[in-house]
Amino acid sequence: MKLSQLEVGEIGIVKEFTDLEMSVKLMEMGCLPGEEVTVSRIAPLGDPIAITVAGYQLSLRKFEASTIILQ
């Protein structure tokens, strides 16, 4: 299951990444394997999305979210 497939309010736990370059940036922002992520909202036009991770809100594009595999 990918993070981009979650609906608003759903929770997942990060398992791994499919894109090394993106993973480096995401991990710096606290989005690491084992972290719990919640989809907080989706932008009015359907992209990007906002997730809650490590106690704060992070916005990322759907494509970027699709590189995050959940447990």
């Binding site: 370059e21 906002a50 990322l60």
Partner: peptide
């Protein structure tokens, strides 16, 4: 480079 949009939404 590839574009990306990973951004904090501050409180």
């Amino acid at each position: 480079e590839r574009g990306y949009f990973i951004m904090e939404l501050p409180v």
